[in-house]
Design a protein around this nucleic acid. Structure first.
Lengths: 325, 325
DNA sequence: AAAAATCCCTCAAAGGTTTGCGGAATTGTT
DNA sequence: AACAATTCCGCAAACCTTTGAGGGATTTTT
């Protein structure tokens, strides 16, 4: 252990600690000669300022907390990667915290954020989060919170969301343009806001222009079951509201030996990775985790800059054509 | 901003700061009555110790840095998730850093680790990392480094790796057991150690028991091209050394309209997510990012506990049967 | 009742950095 | 030569916590 400190440099050079500190910051009070002596020795000794001391003194941690149910997720990982990228560019670090979809762990993690006096928190709440107190405590400490993806219903929080309505609408329009007449539409957990939004927009856009078979599934396996069952009714296209659903539906289609797009068309809403795994590639309306990350970050920076307007932002949706319908 | 500190509590209660500190730590010197008064007020005021002050004072940061080329990766995300899980259980936090496969950014990130006086670093080096100085500097500060997955060739570093030899051997044995006679074997970048290891073990195990068609690809698209070309020679099984390769191969197989396993068999080495996306599910030899994370963490804890033995650890490999051959 | 032990708490320093203020030494102005 | 203005640097407090050492007040021992 050989930690170089300002003190060591000052003693070696016979000058005061404050002079060393100022010299390293290129303060105008310090002569060029002294600056050079200091910087040279600091370099030679591999001096790095102790971040804890800096943060303590300045009461600025330049650290963000990011809270997700799980890192291993096609959506969250790209979101996290995106936020990390921006954080680095803006001289912030990122502390990552998984809740495992457990509100108790979530609360623990938020406590950690408070202890570390983070500059802000990006949060995707668990499916079971009802008590918002831990988040309110952050607010009391003037720590901004930007919710993303799974956001609380309450309206006085900053949120960024993917374009649920726009993406579902695009998907429906695309299907209609292809003159499909019998749609198997697979949605996720009915309780979730995201499901409601996408389903409303989708069914509304389809209207009476096609026949709609609607099914719900909580995971890939359920989606596969539902799709297998419904494929017997010979829909000419299947719509999947998420990657998880798509995976199940594709298994069912492959199992049934159906050719895409001749036997059946496929349309999805996705972050983009999964649809490209298949041949032919699946056409999808994009809800990019990467874009959402950028949006979340800019929202965070606005908060830090002092903005007090609470807003809910939404990314734009984009049709990414494959060859699946 | 309403930060509660020991000082505020002490003033409110008319006792000294040190008494408050000790009371909160349940120190025997403090009377039960005082302890209760203190803890009650601390709770009421939402007191949380300032982590920066604690770390500064104790010169223990309880923070790990984790350095990967990219978070968005089927392997790294599960590794990171695994390490985060263990870290939390052991009262450590995790700072996440992406290099973007750029050695310059990698060096910057390591500097950040030094500034934060992290307790340790988990590192997966970039494909271009040749200068190990930034890592050596960590060592000079007694900061342990555990390399994982992409590890430096040099032998005096702590490393944890997936079971390249074992998994490739299992894959080859499985293929032989199925009496396959003509194998299309798809490997990644020839320059990488991982490719060499897996190829050596695979070809050696196959020996003369089957005919081997070997191809290399740098990414999914190249793998698809190579597979498409080689499928014309009608191999009865295709082996994919990684998820990336598997994705390309599967596209080629689907494109060619081949049925698995009747027309062709498929065997892969994988973290496990991708093989389960297809129907039928692909049989694979598992190289688990999750397991590797656990292994890396235990290696890290050994370092922190004072172990000085430098070792290279390897996870075990496991056959996960699908229905693809 | 005097000595020893116990209990409960305070003092003060340390950890490394930042920064307002003040001051000595140099230079420039009349 | 006396004064003012620069230039360069040091002092000391502050950020918040931890912890060894010490010290009054009460209780126990003889």
């Amino acid at each position: 252990m050989n930690n170089t400190t300002l003190k060591k440099i000052s003693e070696a050079l016979g000058i005061s600690i404050s002079t060393v500190s100022r010299a390293l910051k290129n303060h105008p009070d310090i002569s060029e000669k002294t600056k050079q002596r200091v910087t040279e020795l600091a370099y030679a000794l591999d001096y790095e300022p102790n971040a804890n001391a800096v943060h303590l003194r300045t009461s600025k941690s330049n650290l963000f907390g990011i809270l997700v149910p799980s890192i291993s997720n096609f959506f969250y990982d790209s979101f996290i990667g995106s936020v990390e990228e921006e954080s680095r560019k803006n001289n912030y670090s990122l502390m990552i915290l998984q809740s495992g979809d457990d509100p108790a762990i979530e609360a623990d993690n938020l406590k950690l954020c408070r202890q570390n006096r983070v500059s802000g928190v990006f949060a995707c709440v668990t499916s079971y989060t009802s008590n918002m107190d831990p988040f309110v405590k952050l607010k009391d400490l003037d720590i901004p919170v930007v919710f993303f993806d799974k956001v609380p219903a309450d309206s006085n929080y900053n949120k960024v969301c993917v374009a649920d309505v726009a993406s579902a609408t695009i998907a429906a329009e695309t299907i209609i343009q292809q003159k499909k007449k019998k749609i198997l539409a697979l949605f996720g957990n009915e309780q979730l806001l995201i499901t409601k939004k996408r389903m409303d927009a989708f069914t509304k856009t389809i209207g009476k222009k096609a026949k709609l078979l609607v099914q719900h599934a909580h995971n890939s396996a359920e989606a596969e079951l539902a799709a297998t069952k419904m494929l017997q009714q010979k829909p000419d296209v299947v719509f999947c509201m998420s990657d998880e659903i798509l995976i199940g539906a594709m298994k069912a289609i492959q199992k049934a030996g159906l050719k895409i797009p001749t036997d059946i068309g496929v349309m999805a809403i996705s972050n983009g990775y999964i649809p490209k795994l298949y041949f032919p590639e699946i056409t999808y309306a994009e809800t990019s985790g990467y874009k959402l990350g950028k949006l979340a970050f800019s929202s965070m920076m606005a908060c830090i800059a002092g903005s007090t307007v609470v807003q809910e932002l939404t990314t734009d949706a984009l049709l990414v054509p494959g060859s699946s319908l």
